[in-house]
Amino acid sequence: MNITILKYIFFELLRSRFVISYAVFLAAISAGVAYFSNDELKTSLTLLNVVLFIVPLVSLIFGSIHFYDSEEFIEFLLTQPISRNTVFRAEFLALASSLSIAAVAGLIPALILNGISSTFIFLLFISASLSFIFTGLAFLSSSMNSEKVRGIGLSIIIWLLMSVLFDLIVVLLIVVFSNYPLERFIIIVTALNPIDLGRILILLKTDASAMMGFTGASFKDFFGSTAGMIASAFSLVMWALIPYLFAIRTFRRKNF
């Protein structure tokens, strides 16, 4: 694997105005929330909503924009004796890791102000994995569409689907099938959406889990167990891996 390209793109991105302002923006929010709440649990919960909303959105949109913007650079690289796989992998890893670093760095002020806690470490972990997952999805949508507008449009649709529509559909299903035992079904369904998975993993770590009553207890039973932890980690990894593999497949067959 060619590290040089990865390093080059990575540092280029870290220096870019967008990534820096993204980190600063998150830092401002997290510092503000931590300053006004003074309670690390509440801070974690508020920042959880921010992370679940913003990280996927930024990763998707900026991922697509970056992909289209570096099309000429990619074309240039491909004229050299480098495989398409190497180029794509470098692009993906560079972008995903720089976005993860920006997200984690943006949350650090809250950590400094409120002190460290396992919930917060979890939050950092979730935001990093969401960055990877949604960068992969962004690359998939961009490599599938040669037109920039369509690619970005598809990214926005993916975001809308996963952060809003998916939940609405699940709620609808729960209401419609409320006469059936749904616990197991819901656990499977939530594991299918990385945003929901992140939310539930954090919620179960906080005392909000007590509100979930009997139903919550069964979720906690699953997600708190080793099997549940492995399953959710597996789901997150799959969410990062599968779109990436599909994207690299499309990229290899793409006509430049």
Partner: peptide
């Protein structure tokens, strides 16, 4: 449907 508590704090 108490199971929908799973959507607590969801944006949707």
């Amino acid at each position: 449907s108490p199971e929908s508590i799973i959507m607590l704090r969801s944006v949707a």
